[in-house]
């Protein structure tokens, strides 16, 4: 769990770096994003990484669910009166629920874009800011913008809110998960653990927040 979890955290960073390009407006942004998208779908190194990611998600999910099921079985009779808030964080006790939310989001998210990119009918970008392109590019940029544009998608607001909400779930998942992964891997040291915990909190707030701003930004700039 720890290793895959941390790997997925790395993935989040990579993915975010790509997504932040959506803030670059205009034709330049469109070209850069689509080139990036192409790179991501074709580059062999990225392929390996992406398979690793799929595997991680799968393993992390399956293992996570199996563990959660075992854990439920480990206490057949529940306490009549329990006060777990006295000793542990809410996020730490609800990793499976949070993880499931994240999984649901991942599925939705992939069918929205990833499936389109791979198998869907997608517009093609033929020309960039400096004229005609050597080779036409799949225009994911337009798809994404369109997805969050109320003029083109009647559910754009819902989509933006859903994406933002999913990021809240990830944030909670990571609030506990980031530092927990280190502990699972055996890293606990009086000097470094406080640093890891600090970094984990920062990570779990900053990364999902940046992710969440993107759909909101796209929605509100295009709605205006």
């Amino acid at each position: 769990m720890g290793a895959t979890g941390l790997f997925l955290c790395l993935f989040l960073v990579g993915h975010l770096a790509g997504n932040l390009q959506l803030f670059i407006g205009g034709a330049e942004g469109q070209l850069q994003f689509n080139e990036y998208a192409k790179f991501m779908t074709t580059n062999p190194a990225v392929k390996i990484l992406s398979y690793l990611t799929y595997f991680s998600i799968l393993f992390h999910t399956v293992d996570g669910i199996l563990l959660a099921v075992e854990n439920r079985k480990a206490r057949p009779v529940k306490y009549a009166y329990n006060k777990p808030s006295a000793n542990s964080s809410w996020a730490s006790r609800n990793m499976a629920v949070l993880g499931t939310l994240v999984l649901a989001f991942i599925v939705v998210h992939m069918s929205n874009f990833w499936a389109q990119m791979h198998w869907g009918e997608i517009p093609v970008q033929i020309s960039g800011p400096d004229g005609t392109l050597d080779e036409p590019l799949k225009d994911l940029h337009t798809v994404v913008l369109g997805f969050f544009n109320p003029a083109e998608n009647s559910l754009a607001l819902a989509a933006a809110l859903l994406y933002a909400f999913a990021m809240v779930a990830i944030a909670f998942h990571l609030w506990h998960g980031f530092q927990s992964a280190w502990q699972s891997l055996g890293v606990n040291h009086p000097r470094y653990t406080p640093l890891i915990k600090g970094a984990g909190k920062a990570f779990s707030v900053v990364i999902p927040a940046l992710f969440a701003i993107i759909p909101l930004y796209l929605y509100f700039t295009q709605a205006a």
Binding site: L67, N71, R75, N87, S88, S92, M95, Q179, Q183
Partner: peptide, 8 residues
């Protein structure tokens, strides 16, 4: 059960 590091 399995440890999920809640720290409780």
């Amino acid at each position: 059960g399995n440890c999920s590091n809640t720290g409780a």
